[in-house]
Design a protein around this nucleic acid. Structure first.
Lengths: 198, 198
DNA sequence: CCGTAAAAAGAACGTTTGTTCATATACAAA
DNA sequence: TTTGTATATGAACAAACGTTCTTTTTACGG
């Protein structure tokens, strides 16, 4: 049975499911194997050890979820740019796989140093830098009030993270998410009202 | 050696330390006992089982951190009220014990249903209701623009949570928190600029 | 059809886990 | 001083843990 790359992927996916639900410590090698349909010893044909599985998952968390081309150009339109950003953000937040990875992130944030650093740098800094660029353009165009673009980007993004967490928590217990479905758009409206000129 | 209530508290405190650092699964009964200076079997003289220790900790997480009297009255002053709120919030965020409990919260948020529900209700709803009351007054007084007070409260609080998480993460790896020390006040300034009238 | 190599199974290992139980010790009340 | 109770110990348990090893099964290239 050579070259069944399929299995390796199944292992990671089962691991994501389990770590999202029960954390890294709760996702035992035996549980992962059972979910895949193999014995625990077979896992080690694909990964050196349990830690290696986690490492591969952490890599996936920060794969660029969406990128925006021509930020400078689009930013000139003001609010529609933020709307577009939110659409992309919601796409990620509501994506099943990405949501699981989000849970893994929260679960292991305080246990895994590499995860922490990636979070503060990638997840955080990257989006902030991109957005601050856009806000800078909007200020130059006289669309929004003058302020520190970096801080403004942070103020725009921070609630998104919180809403995403709320969404994730609500979904677990299968509670209704209707109150949360429009919250992202409302945020854009509120924010634009906060910074727009005229 | 009857009535040494002291030990019971030592156990909880050691458990908080360990769960904050290594999560519930990582904080074994033996580790907790060793931290207290007793054997693992002695733990069971004070708590029925490991779960009972966690339950007692969860109770502490949502003990009202600070309460504000005369909200209606103070809210009329506008921005100074928000300043005061932030001072109280920072007091909690920078408190050593409370910070540990915050880590416990994040660590176990996805594992413990009771914790999730308390978070969404207490942590969230309670602060929001209180703040929305204040914003409602401010709107009546013509200090801030008219909007849904509940949503405005959410917009004010969400970044605080995110900043608190950032603070906690940064502290773990003993990185510099100077960039974060003034972020709470900057948030108030930004927010007030966003909603004030005139 | 056979040989090879990848992937699986199965058993075993040394630890650690949460919990129980019988026993010992210390202290307050009688 | 005796008795009772709260608290500690130390040994033991069954189960689960990550990992390693040997052996068997499988699939493909020659």
């Amino acid at each position: 049975m050579p070259k069944q790359e399929n299995t390796k992927q199944k292992i990671v996916e089962a691991a994501i499911d389990l770590i999202a639900e029960q954390g890294y410590k709760g996702a035992s090698v035996r549980k992962i194997a059972r979910a895949v349909g193999i014995r625990e010893s077979a896992i080690y044909n694909h990964y050196e050890n349990k830690e290696a599985i986690l490492k591969s998952i952490i890599g996936q968390i920060f794969e660029t979820p969406f990128e925006m081309k021509e930020i400078e150009e689009k930013a000139k339109r003001g609010k529609p740019f933020l709307r577009e950003f939110i659409v992309a953000y919601k796409l990620v937040a509501f994506d099943k796989k990405k949501e699981k990875l989000f849970r893994v992130l929260i679960n292991e944030l305080f246990q895994n140093r590499a995860l922490r650093e990636s979070f503060l740098q990638e997840f955080h800094q990257k989006d902030i830098k991109r957005l601050s660029q856009a806000f800078f353009v909007m200020m130059q165009e006289g669309l929004i009030r003058s302020d520190d673009p970096m801080f403004m980007a942070q103020e725009f993004l921070a609630p998104l993270f919180y809403f995403r967490l709320q969404l994730s928590l609500t979904k677990i217990d299968k509670q209704s998410t209707t109150a949360l479905s429009t919250i992202f758009e409302r945020h854009v409206d509120f924010f634009w009202e906060s910074v727009k000129i005229g």
